[in-house]
């Protein structure tokens, strides 16, 4: 094959994917970062302003207060997922991968089901269930004698974010569960037999043999959680709208970005500041991914069996 023909062949195979991906993914990303260094004037022209959008965002109180609020909430959102979603996922995966378990496939399928549904649908369904108007949640709690615990959790500043986070945990626990479950299945049975002969019970074998072997997967699950959490939007928007709860108590980066960029009842849309926030989100996510790639992943060995 001649060199030209070879290059032509490569072009035909690669061009469609590269063009679509570059145009609708990489270019917008770069353009957004680029935008964040400009200020859009009322006449439609743009003016280069250097880092001033960022200094405004981080130091001007009208901008920095919501930004830091959203950032703090987002960190909390992530923390709750790490401390609740991933441990539950781990436990469920560990139980599902036990040898000789009946109904394994049924449990797996059913527990994964919420993950399949739209966040909008899930958010709204929970909103109904938790609504004092319907009172299902209260009825349920009363059944266990815990009725006094019930409150308008979604409506109160102190509990809105926690409640929404737990709903998100409820929906997405299937993802860590399946990823960890897969990693556990890949561990050969003979290795567990060897541990049994060495005198370990199922629980000890899990802690001392399986857990160390799935550390790379736990690392992956953590970084996926991080990326998804700092990119989240749908659930909060669906449940609380763009204003994100009583007095912005459930505001996270995604909703802040949406509000700033599109504007709302309280303010006009602002392309430049929207871009600046998106760029900050990009930097945060990039930092997380880099920490994973260069610090966490480097330290961990992937074992092939």
């Amino acid at each position: 094959m001649s060199r030209t023909a070879y290059l032509l062949l490569l072009a035909v195979f690669l061009a469609p994917a590269v063009i679509i991906y570059s145009t609708f993914s990489i270019y917008p990303l770069l353009a957004t970062i680029f935008n964040s260094f400009y200020d859009r004037q009322d006449d439609g022209t743009s003016l280069f302003v250097g880092l001033s959008n960022f200094t405004t965002l981080l130091s001007d109180p009208t901008w920095s207060a919501p930004f830091w609020n959203a950032f703090r909430n987002n960190c909390l959102f992530f923390l709750i997922h790490m401390c609740v979603q991933n441990p539950i996922g781990l436990v469920l995966a560990a139980l599902l991968s036990l040898p000789r378990l009946n109904l394994r496939a049924t449990y797996r399928t059913l527990i994964f089901m919420p993950t399949m549904l739209s966040v909008v649908v899930i958010g709204f369904s929970w909103q109904l269930i938790l609504s004092p108007l319907w009172g299902v949640a209260k009825m349920f709690l009363s059944f266990f004698g815990l009725g006094f615990l019930f409150g308008p959790w979604l409506g109160e500043e102190s509990t809105a974010l926690l409640t929404i986070s737990l709903i998100s945990v409820w929906q997405f626990v299937g993802i860590p569960m399946i990823l960890i479950y897969t990693a556990l299945l890949a561990i050969p049975d003979e290795l567990i037999d060897a541990a049994t002969v060495d005198g370990l019970n199922q629980f000890q074998a899990f802690i001392w043999v399986k857990l160390p072997l799935i550390l790379p997967t736990l690392g992956l699950v953590s970084v996926l959680t991080f990326v998804n959490n700092f990119n989240a939007f749908d659930l909060i928007y669906a449940m609380k709208g763009a204003l994100a709860g009583p007095n912005f108590s459930a505001d996270i980066m995604g909703t802040l970005f949406y509000r700033v960029f599109f504007g709302n009842q309280l303010q006009l849309g602002d392309t430049s500041m929207g871009s600046a926030i998106a760029t900050m989100m990009f930097l945060i996510i990039l930092t997380g991914v880099m920490i994973y790639l260069f610090v966490i992943q480097r330290r961990m060995h992937r074992y092939s069996f």
Binding site: E190, D193, A194, L213, H301, F305
Partner: peptide, 11 residues
Amino acid sequence: MVFQSYALYPH
């Protein structure tokens, strides 16, 4: 017991 695949703990 000595296993066919040896079953050594990789970690």
